[in-house]
Structures are given as C-alpha cells and as structure tokens.
C-alpha cells in the first residue's frame, strides 16, 4: 500500500529531460545502485552467461577451440535429434516419470493432510508433521544410499521381509521394472511433508464456525472433511497442481544419477541424465553441442508450460507464481 502511494508521488513530479533525470536519480540513490551491483553481476555472469552460451547448440563445439573457434553448423544438431533412435525412448521415459510424479505423488499430501487435520492431540499432530517433513531436508545422496542398503539383496531389510514370507529376493536397483516405483517412492517420501505444510496452513485458516454449524446440522466427520475442509483448501490444491504440471519436465536429476546404473537405463534414462552423460561422463568425446540442443528443446517446452501454468494460477486463484 505505502509503496503504491509513493509511486504516484514520484510520478507527479514534472518531467525533466531524460539525461538530467537519470543523473539526479543516480546522485540521489547511488547507494541503492551500489547495493544492486553484486546482484547484477550474478545476474549477468551466472544467469545470462549460460543462456548466451546456448549458442553452441548451433555449432559443432570443440572443447579446445571454445565458442569463438568452433564451426557453426546451423540446425544440424537438431536434425540429429530427429534422427536419433534413442531419443524416442528418452522422451518416453521422461514423460512417464513426469506423469507418475503428478498422478501418484500429488494426491498423497492432500489425503495425508486431511487426516492429519483430524488429529486433536496437538503433540501427536506436530510430531507427525515434523517426522513427515524431515526427509525433505535430507540430500538425495543420503536418501538413495539408504534406499540402496534397505533393498540390498544380501542383507537389506526389504528382501529379508520378502524372504520371510517365502519370496525370492529381488535385485531392486538392477531391475528396470523397479526403477520407476522406487523413484516415485523416494519422491513421495522426500516431498509429501513439504506440501503438507502448505495444506495444513490452509486448513488452519478455516473458520471453526463452519464446523460448528455443520455439527448443528448433524454432519458426520466424513461429511465435514468432504464438504468443508477439502473445498477450503481447493485453491491451494489448484495452485500446487498447476505448479507441478508446469514443472512436469524437471525431474530430480541428482536422484536419477545416483539411482541409475547401466542395467536400468531402459527405464531410468531421461533427457537430463542423457545430456549429463554425453557431456560429462562420455566414453568418447563429449558432445556438448548435441547435449545443449537436446536440452534447449526441453527448456523451451518447459518454459511454455510454466508460462501457461502461471496464467492459469492467476486465473483460478488470483495468485501468481512469479
């Protein structure tokens, strides 16, 4: 509010020539501009620099020659993408993981929050919430390492349980069929506490009078959850849903790189891991240009999705993401 007031005040000043105004502004606010310098340096060097370096997608970049010395090849790299037989599998794997993340992972914290909201004992409530939130702060390296020991075929707990029930131990980390379930389980484990914080906060804001009125009308617990609690958090849910659809292409690369190995590439290799591999872990020469071209296509699609998501969020809940 106050900021707005000030803005109009500034505009009311009669206009002077541009150069003079800039000079006066700098003289008056030079300290603020000095404060901006580190931020601008970061912006230019570390945020725009890389965007500029994306030009190598149109080159045949060679490590030694650098951007200025490498030959330009136009759209050759993009033509290669179309012809690459492996690309189809990568896109398929990426999309499947992304869709699973939305369809399977997304509803978990909503259900969890609904039931957590029903807990009356405050101590249980906060302890459960803290416990569910903890994995969010643990690094992917630790999470995957824990998973690795838990499902180890020779001593891991999971296989011990399977064997106890007469099953044969499973080599989870080396089975292509198990990669996606394990990835999703880790994702749920690691993130559902985060979304729960948001939903619980929205539920706290619900007017208790609504529940009291419902009690008067003889509504049971399920009816109250369904007709009061859930609708009250619907705008949060919509925003979260839109965010996750907008981010559909951003897989957790750390997790994938730590989890995958050559025996599960079939299901685990996604666009980002492939780009990482051909650039930083290549058995031949790193294919920087091709990797950048592949990633550029992905970034453009993701960018469009996020913009659409932002528009939708603004429309449905009067909040924008940025």
């Amino acid at each position: 509010m106050s900021a707005k007031k000030n803005k109009t005040a500034v505009q009311a000043v009669p206009k002077k020539p541009l150069g003079e105004r800039i000079k006066k502004d700098i003289k008056k606010n030079y300290l603020l501009y000095i404060m901006l310098i580190p931020g601008l340096l970061v912006l230019v060097l570390f945020k725009f620099g890389p965007v500029g370096a994306m030009v190598i997608a149109f080159q045949k970049f060679s490590a030694f020659k650098g951007i200025s010395g490498s030959p330009w090849v136009g759209l050759d790299q993009f033509r290669r993408i179309v012809k690459d037989p492996y690309m189809l599998k990568l896109v398929k794997n990426t999309v499947i993981l992304a869709v699973l993340s939305v369809v399977v992972v997304f509803p978990v914290p909503i259900i969890f929050s609904l039931f957590l909201n029903e807990v009356r004992n405050r101590r249980i409530r906060s302890t459960v919430q803290s416990a569910s939130f903890l994995p969010y702060f643990i690094s992917s390296a630790v999470m995957v390492s824990i998973l690795y020991t838990l499902v180890s075929p020779s001593y891991g707990l999971v296989n011990k349980i399977i064997e106890f029930f007469g099953g044969k131990s499973i080599f989870f980390m080396a089975e292509p069929g198990w990669f996606r379930p394990l990835y999703i389980i880790l994702q749920i484990w690691q993130t559902f506490g985060y979304s729960t914080v948001i939903y619980i906060a929205a539920m706290m804001a619900i007017d208790t009078e609504q529940y009291e009125a419902a009690d008067m009308d003889g509504a049971n617990r399920w009816q109250k959850m369904w007709y009061i609690t859930l609708p009250s958090i619907s705008s949060s849910v919509i925003v979260m849903l839109i965010i996750s659809i907008g981010n559909i292409f951003s897989v957790d690369l750390d997790r994938i790189l730590l989890m995958y190995n050559s025996s599960v590439y079939e299901t685990a290799d996604v666009i980002q891991s492939y780009v990482y591999r051909i650039a930083f872990d290549s058995a031949g020469f790193p294919d920087y240009s091709y990797g950048t071209a592949v990633n550029m296509l992905k970034s453009v699609i993701a960018f469009i999705l996020v913009i659409i998501a932002n528009k939708l969020a603004a429309k449905y809940s009067e909040t924008r993401l940025f």
Binding site: L45, F46, K47, G49, P50, V51, G52, A53, M54, I56, I67, Q272, V275, Y276, A279, F280, Y288, G291, T292, N295, M296, K298, S299, A302, F303, V306, I307, F322
Partner: peptide, 13 residues
C-alpha cells in the same frame, strides 16, 4: 529462473 540454460552452457561459462 524459468528458462533453464542447462548444465552444459553453464559449465562452459
């Protein structure tokens, strides 16, 4: 933030 340059261009810079 929204438009990711990606690992490789970042690495080059």
């Amino acid at each position: 933030w929204v438009f990711e340059a990606g690992l490789i261009p970042t690495y080059i810079i």
